[in-house]
Design a protein around this nucleic acid. Structure first.
Lengths: 233, 233
DNA sequence: CGCCTAAGTAAGTATTTTATGAATTAACAT
DNA sequence: ATGTTAATTCATAAAATACTTACTTAGGCG
């Protein structure tokens, strides 16, 4: 707290209160980062329209003007937040390294990883939900969002092919369908936790239920892939 | 601008249409219904915070005051809309009648029904999404929302039990997990269609993809239930 | 017919909320 | 120091937006 208190010079302030003359230590990077972090939470909790720039700046404890100085507008701040959160998933996905493992193990690892990602990133879940509410108005413009998606699908396709060749996997599904399935099983109860919980009178967001859900998800996907063939109509 | 006078002074109106002199035929029920219908779409498309009462009344072509006359506030209108859309699903669900069919067929029917319900009710999907964005602030207060949920779970449990007894189903899962799974597989791509489409560069909301998804969903659930046992760790 | 209530209209207002213009102050290179 | 640039504050514009007050008119009912 080295900031130049030398407090009493605040006396020069004419308005009565004269409280926090503390002129906010200059640190543009920190300020920008704090704003982005606060925005992430604000947009996640209230959506774009429900979010208030005022709440964001108050959370950071800075002047509203700064938000516009650094980000230009509420919309641009939202885009920055979206971009930031999507960068994370790409980074994490890159560490998966599925090609070197046996098919069954690789698939299990992918499912567990995916489940844990959503379970551990409520901000991502919420921001994504809101972006879909906005009909994906901004997501398309974010560059580098499709970059590592094809590799992921390829990896899934490769795992299934290998598994089939080895005879451990049965019916071969479309990799995209499988991936959407994994994500659906992992995230739907998070996306719709409040309504589902209200409808069934059980808290689907509790630690216990989520833990059971994890096992169920892994179970189901492995079961689907290893099953010989789908029951015929 | 002493409004009220008779028709032809519409010439003073600058915008072309000049329709509004017609003093809206009196029909309270119709007005109320129209407001509710418009609200359903407005809240679905923009969420609670993004929705504009002004747009709703303009869509109906009535005076803003009427909205408050009939519903009291934006919030109460939202609740009315939520209540209305949730009443539908309950009604439809009641027609299922799963107990009289063979287990495999009953389950297939349930999955298809559930898939088609979400696929055919975008308003329901969107309103639900928004209600979850609001952390279920209103859903809990809506009476009769839990009414027919337990019967549904019981029905699922019964189907699985019968299937197991007949030897057509293998491992027995928790009915709630199964139901959440069915819903997840049916609705996740609708809930997250825009982001997923952007990420993979494929339109998951197209008729073709949704049709493929339907088959995949049925396939997966039937496969999961009929599978002997899950692959062991 | 004439009155009374409720449906409907016109025209605000109060408040919130995003956004800026311009002054002020710190940091830093020269 | 000094001058320049960028960070921060102050004060407020400007626009939305939910909601109201005060009126008008239709139409059922005695």
């Amino acid at each position: 707290m080295r900031a130049g208190q030398s407090g009493n010079d605040g006396a020069s302030d004419m308005t009565g209160p004269a409280k926090k003359r503390t002129p906010r230590q200059r640190d543009p990077e920190r300020t920008r980062a704090q704003l982005l972090e606060a925005a992430l939470h604000e947009f996640a909790d209230h959506g774009f329209h429900g979010a208030r720039v005022d709440r964001i700046t108050r959370a950071v404890g800075c002047n509203p003007r700064l938000l516009y100085h650094y980000f230009g507008s509420k919309e641009k701040l939202y885009i920055a937040a979206l971009e930031h959160i999507f960068a994370d998933i790409r980074a994490q996905e890159r560490e998966l390294d599925l090609d070197r493992q046996e098919p069954v193990q690789a698939m299990r690892r992918l499912v567990e990883f995916t489940y844990d990602f959503f379970d551990g990133n409520p901000l991502f879940v919420k921001l994504t939900r809101n972006e879909n509410l906005l009909e994906g108005r901004f997501i398309a413009d974010i560059a580098a969002i499709r970059t590592s998606s094809q590799p992921l699908l390829d990896a899934i396709g490769a795992i299934m092919a290998r598994g089939q060749a080895q005879g451990v996997f049965g019916h071969r599904y479309d990799p995209l369908q499988i991936y959407v399935t994994i994500v659906a099983l992992s995230a739907h109860h998070l996306n719709n936790g409040h309504t589902l919980s209200a409808i069934f009178g059980i808290d689907l967001l509790s630690r216990d239920w989520r833990s059971a859900r994890r096992a169920h998800t892994v179970d189901l996907v492995m079961n689907a892939l290893s099953g010989a063939d789908s029951p015929q109509p």
